[in-house]
């Protein structure tokens, strides 16, 4: 797959000595949705700032669609649209003017037809002549996305796009993000909401204390690091050799009439039959079997805790 963004050995040490990014290496594929997960202060916003030219690098190299982000900054930056985390808008500007301003800033001729299309896409057309100060938080967030798309970027950075947004609007934004992906826009989003990453991302990167700790396809990350649990409800009582054989299986716990067995997704083929062999060999009657998978949230918490 084509790489559209490449981050090589990037370090950022702030003037106070705090190291916000440590030897970051990352490649983003063209057309994918990449979710960058991490706790507060992990370095997500600093990394986005470094790529977009808002933060000066201490060392390292960033290439955007083949252009060095410092040496060829014009070509590199024209490929990028940025929606920052904070709702930063010029309160006294009109919606239509602020989106048209973004076009000009990126060196494009004012294209009101395209601005109107964007405003329609984001359900803002009827507010086009309103001042930004009169809009709700959700509308301002959509204006910021429209501004970031005004110059038709190939890569869109969304820093916490649904922070402080209600459930209905969040789902509508997820839809819009999927539409952008269908149009071929590469999307890099940071989020606190694991559900968001789980639902939208093709690949996931986990950053903690300035270091990338995992990058993988969402499905394979869950499969590789995901733990599964089988819960079996049995009838009667367990005693003698049957009890001994069950207790000899690692990670198996007995809880009343329930058998709880935890295993790694990757070792399911070897581990699960062992448990069922014991049940069948000792003729233990069981009435219900339930399987649970560890969520991305659990994986994230484990990785960050490490």
């Amino acid at each position: 797959m084509d790489t559209v963004l490449s981050v090589e050995s990037v370090n950022k040490i702030y003037s106070g000595g705090f190291q916000a990014l440590e030897n970051i290496n990352l490649s983003i594929n063209k057309g994918e949705i990449f979710a960058l997960l991490g706790p507060n202060g992990a370095g997500k916003t600093t990394l986005i700032g470094a790529i977009c030219g808002l933060v000066k690098l201490t060392s390292g190299k960033i290439t955007i669609d083949g252009f060095d982000h410092q040496r060829d900054f014009r070509s590199a930056r024209s490929k990028i649209g940025l929606v920052p985390q904070e709702l930063t808008t010029d309160a006294f500007e009109r919606v239509i003017d602020t989106v048209a301003f973004s076009q000009g800033l990126f060196g494009l001729k004012k294209d009101i037809e395209y601005v109107d299309k964007l405003l329609k896409d984001f359900s803002l057309f009827d507010k086009r002549n309103n001042k930004l100060m009169t809009l709700s938080g959700g509308m301002k967030r959509r204006v910021m996305i429209a501004k970031a798309l005004a110059h038709k970027p190939e890569i869109l950075f969304l820093d916490e796009p649904t922070a402080g947004v209600d459930v209905q609007l969040r789902e509508s934004m997820w839809e819009q993000i999927h539409c952008l992906k269908e149009r071929g826009v590469t999307i890099i989003l940071t989020t606190h909401y694991i559900e968001e990453a789980e639902k939208m991302a093709d690949r996931i990167g986990i950053i903690n204390k300035g270091k990338i700790v995992q990058v993988d396809e969402k499905k394979s990350l869950i499969k590789r690091l995901g733990q599964k649990t089988i819960q079996i409800a049995y009838d009667g009582s367990l005693e003698g050799q049957a009890l001994q054989d069950l207790q000899s299986i690692p990670n198996l716990k007995l809880d009343g009439q329930l058998i709880n067995y935890e295993y790694q997704s990757t070792s399911a083929v070897e581990e699960v039959p062992k448990l069922f062999k014991v049940l069948v060999d000792h003729k233990i009657p069981f009435s219900e079997v339930e399987s649970k998978e560890k969520s991305l949230q659990d994986i994230f918490v484990d990785l960050v805790r490490e």
Partner: peptide, 17 residues
């Protein structure tokens, strides 16, 4: 003012010297 409101991000991330 853009520094104060945060809108300076757009100017600093645009292809403008």
């Amino acid at each position: 003012f853009p520094k104060f409101t945060g809108t300076i991000y757009e100017v600093l991330s645009a292809p403008i010297s």
